Amino acid sequence: MTAKSTAPDLADPRGTISDEVLLELSRRRPERFGEIYDRYVREIHAYLGRRLDRQAADDLAAEVFLAAFRKRETFAPRRGTVRSWLYGFASNVIAQHRRTEMRRLAALQRSAGAHDGREHGHEDRVVTRVDAASAQGRLAAELRALPDGDRDVLLLSALGELSHEEVARALDIPYGTVGSRLSRVRKKLRAALGGVDPMCGGSDG
């Protein structure tokens, strides 16, 4: 027998069941987690692809959602949104594949002189305000040199367009740490890029 529709009080103002309610439902009905997957798989896949590469993203996106599914009982709404929670799993996966990200940055740095205007990955997204290929190469070098935590904060904000609070939840760090890291990194990168602000996305909200 088909289950009745969810009561209106479980829906957001648009009539769509919220992420948090879906995740709660999935604890009793695991198949409902597929709706969370459908909502966010493209976004998470794109983020992984920009940080690593498309081939890695194809494999690792599934790994992110599998980890989230297995740990869905641990989600606590008071600690943040389902979206930031998923980016936390994505950050953990990226941390396990740092070598891939470093190789990608190194390749961009080497090929900066031969830049052909096509999008090569997350570095192009971050430097949309930088025209010179040489500047792009400098940014790739600076990103490689950043501590992993600083790079994660910067790229979750610039690429994932997560707010400060969402970044804090994704990385399980204090809110104030996000702001201080972003301020420090942006100052460092502006100096390396001749005063150009490398941020092209993200929110201070």
Rank of each mutant, 00 (worst) to 15 (best):
F75S: 00
V64I: 13
A61V: 15
W85C: 05
G80F: 12
R70T: 03
Y87L: 04
A46P: 11
D53R: 06
E24K: 04
R79G: 05
R28N: 06
V93H: 02
R50M: 14
F75Q: 00
D53F: 04
G49C: 12
Y47A: 14
A61G: 14
A61Y: 08
A56Y: 08
S84D: 10
R51Y: 09
P77T: 00
H45T: 09
V93R: 02
V64C: 14
F33D: 02
P30G: 09
S18L: 13
V82E: 04
I44E: 12
Q55A: 13
R51W: 12
Y37P: 01
K71M: 07
F69C: 01
A67E: 07
R72H: 00
E73L: 09
V21M: 12
W85G: 07
D58N: 11
F65W: 02
R54T: 15
W85E: 04
A90K: 02
L22E: 13
F33E: 01
L23E: 02
D38Y: 05
G80V: 08
E63H: 11
P30W: 03
A46Y: 10
R39T: 11
R83I: 10
R51C: 15
E31R: 06
T74G: 00
E35N: 09
D38P: 01
A76D: 11
A95I: 01
L60N: 04
R39N: 07
G88L: 02
E43I: 15
A62M: 11
R78Y: 03
R50N: 15
R42D: 15
P77N: 01
G34E: 15
R51A: 15
N92L: 06
R54Q: 15
E63M: 11
F89P: 00
R70N: 05
R51N: 14
E35A: 13
S84F: 06
G88C: 03
A62S: 14
E31F: 03
R29K: 04
I36W: 04
D19E: 10
V93Q: 03
E20H: 10
A57W: 08
R27I: 03
E31D: 14
R27F: 02
D19M: 04
L48E: 12
D59E: 11
H45F: 13
H45G: 13
E20Q: 14
I44L: 13
G80N: 09
R78N: 03
A46H: 11
G80T: 08
A95Y: 05
R70E: 12
R78G: 07
P30I: 06
R83M: 07
R29I: 06
I44H: 06
R83K: 14
R39A: 07
E43V: 14
F33R: 00
E24Y: 02
T81V: 06
I94F: 00
Y87P: 03
F75H: 03
D19N: 15
G88Q: 01
L52H: 09
R32A: 08
G49N: 12
R78H: 08
R83N: 09
